[in-house]
Simulated scan of single mutants.
Amino acid sequence: MEIEISRVHYPVTTLGPGNRIGIWLQGCSIHCKGCISMDTWQFGINKIALAELEKVLKLWLPQCDGITISGGEPFDQEAQLIELLNFLKPYNKSILLYSGYPFALLKDKNIVRNKLIDVLISEPYDHLEAQTKRLLGSDNQKVHFITDLGEIDFKTYLEQPFPKKLDVQITEDIVWMAGIPLNGMSEIDEVSKNDKVTISHSQAVIKNK
């Protein structure tokens, strides 16, 4: 089975407690206005064998504190996501999953009912909403503790103040960031312009009407 992947990184320190494996799936059909990850919208640009992804993850799983899966939209690759979660679950590391779909559409999915994840953050990003809560791009998004492990790992963490922190990796002319920046990318973009640096997404797609 193949899975569409944007990137995989370790350690990620801004998307949950501890040093986590970050997995970003490629492809999203939701296209929230103001999304900071437009580069993950396009489907069909980076397919890899799930077995190859698992080989990479096996190197990091023994020492990581958990796994955070985002996108893109993970539920747009539901069959592949189930296979990936079945591989990850025996390691007993907390798994946080982001989805832009409403919880009403996700609560009866096998992934939720069978507790293949520990924490789910649901609802589409809304650029007009306030942003005051840790791990949330906008306050309309909801955190759901699916398992006891998820609540143990995340409850206290989520009660802490919103940190001004991002993971940043720079390679040649590409800057890769992980985390939830305050006010999306607007503040970062303005500061960059003051330094005569223009930031743009590596891809941009227009949602089909």
Rank of each mutant, 00 (worst) to 15 (best):
H9R: 13
Y10L: 09
T14P: 11
P17E: 08
R20T: 00
R20W: 02
I21D: 04
I21G: 04
G22N: 04
I23S: 01
W24I: 00
W24S: 08
L25V: 01
Q26H: 02
Q26T: 03
C28R: 01
S29K: 13
S29Y: 12
H31M: 08
C32Q: 06
K33Y: 14
K33R: 09
G34Q: 03
I36C: 12
I36P: 05
I36M: 08
S37D: 01
S37T: 02
M38G: 09
M38W: 04
D39R: 05
Q42V: 08
Q42A: 08
Q42G: 00
I45M: 02
N46R: 03
K47I: 00
I48M: 04
A51W: 05
E52I: 01
E54K: 14
E54H: 10
E54V: 13
V56S: 07
L57W: 10
L59C: 06
L59N: 13
L59F: 08
Q63I: 14
Q63K: 15
D65Y: 02
I67W: 03
I67P: 05
S70A: 15
S70I: 14
G71L: 11
G72Y: 03
E73V: 14
E73H: 11
F75S: 07
E78G: 09
E78I: 15
Q80R: 10
Q80T: 08
I82R: 12
E83S: 13
L84G: 03
L84M: 05
N86G: 09
F87G: 02
F87I: 01
L88P: 15
P90M: 07
P90L: 07
P90D: 04
Y91L: 01
N92E: 15
N92T: 15
N92S: 13
S94M: 02
L97C: 05
L97I: 07
L97D: 05
L97P: 09
S99T: 09
G100S: 13
Y101H: 13
L105I: 12
L105Q: 11
K107Y: 14
V112Q: 03
N114W: 03
K115N: 11
K115V: 07
V119G: 10
L120T: 11
L120A: 03
I121R: 00
S122T: 12
E123Y: 12
E123L: 12
P124D: 05
P124K: 09
P124T: 08
Y125V: 14
Y125Q: 11
Y125P: 02
D126M: 04
H127C: 12
L128K: 14
E129V: 00
A130N: 07
T132V: 06
R134G: 10
L135R: 05
G137L: 14
S138L: 09
D139E: 12
Q141T: 05
K142N: 14
H144T: 13
F145C: 07
